[in-house]
Design a protein around this nucleic acid. Structure first.
Length: 256
DNA sequence: ATGACTCCCAGTGGGAGA
């Protein structure tokens, strides 16, 4: 089973290359972030014609998430964090082939002294509380998406410059460790990886060409799922497209 | 460098992203 997450930074712009990528990679489940589409504009028919079912949850201009599956509609679909009043479309979850898939577009946070950072902390608190019950109900669970957190200094191209900056603060990293504390494992770090592996590169300043990026898109697997994980990689190829998203997809493979 | 690029909604500029 192949699982993937991709922040497409506008599905309207990225739809053709996402369809190409689906064809090439054949994921069983793909979660998308930053679709930036209201629900009436979601291109489910085009995606269905390519062979994937979708469930989606969006809003105008910002955010927006979706879950695409290869073999049938996901079951028990949840949109956003139950009990957490949120105006922003950031979470979609569903059960796919016995695996609970939770896709998230975590808040950016903008700056550590901003209101948006306060919202990010509240959102992370709510996510962790909800995941406790999700894990109890679904031991085979994967949490994946754009976390907007670089968990460690080795996930940052210039940790000195980024020290204390958004995505790298102690508070955000403590929250990431809190998710691991639920029994989740960072699939990427289950394997030996090339140094300077990132999932996001700034559009500006030739950052991709210079490989100046952050690893902020993650796939976390539950204790029960961890023994099944055989690989986890970042696919940099779509970032080389003429008109790329600033994020690359991250993939994990599970044994059947 | 309060930048750089891209996307969106707007409407010849500004917010947000990370």
């Amino acid at each position: 089973m192949k699982l993937a997450t991709w922040n497409v930074n506008s599905l309207n712009v990225r739809l053709p290359q996402m369809l190409d990528w689906l064809q090439a990679q054949q994921p069983d489940a793909l979660v998308l972030q930053e679709t930036k589409l209201t629900d009436d504009k979601f291109p489910h028919a085009e995606i269905a014609a390519a062979g994937w079912q979708s469930v989606w949850f969006g809003q105008k201009t910002y955010n927006g998430v979706a879950l695409l599956t290869r073999h049938g509609e996901p079951a028990d679909v949840v949109r956003n964090i139950p009990g957490f009043d949120d105006q922003q479309a950031r979470v979609i979850a569903g059960t796919v082939a016995g695996v609970r898939v939770v896709g998230g577009y975590f808040p950016n946070g903008q700056a550590p002294d901003s209101d948006k950072f306060v919202y990010k902390m509240r959102w992370l608190d709510a996510l962790r509380e909800w995941l406790k019950t999700e894990l109890a109900a679904h031991p085979q669970l994967v949490l994946m998406g754009d976390f907007n957190i670089a968990p460690e200094d080795r996930d940052v191209y210039d940790p000195i410059a980024w020290a204390g900056q958004i995505h790298c603060t102690d508070e955000e990293r403590t929250h990431f460790k809190g998710l691991l504390g639920l029994g989740l494992h960072d699939a990427f770090r289950l394997f030996e990886q090339p140094p300077k592996s990132w999932s996001w590169w700034d559009y500006r300043n030739l950052a991709f060409r210079k490989n100046q990026g952050l690893r902020i898109d993650h796939i976390l697997v539950s204790q029960a799922l961890q023994p099944r994980v055989t690989a986890c990689t970042v696919d940099k190829l779509p970032r080389k497209n003429e008109r790329p998203s600033d994020h690359a997809p991250v993939l994990a493979t599970l044994a059947d």
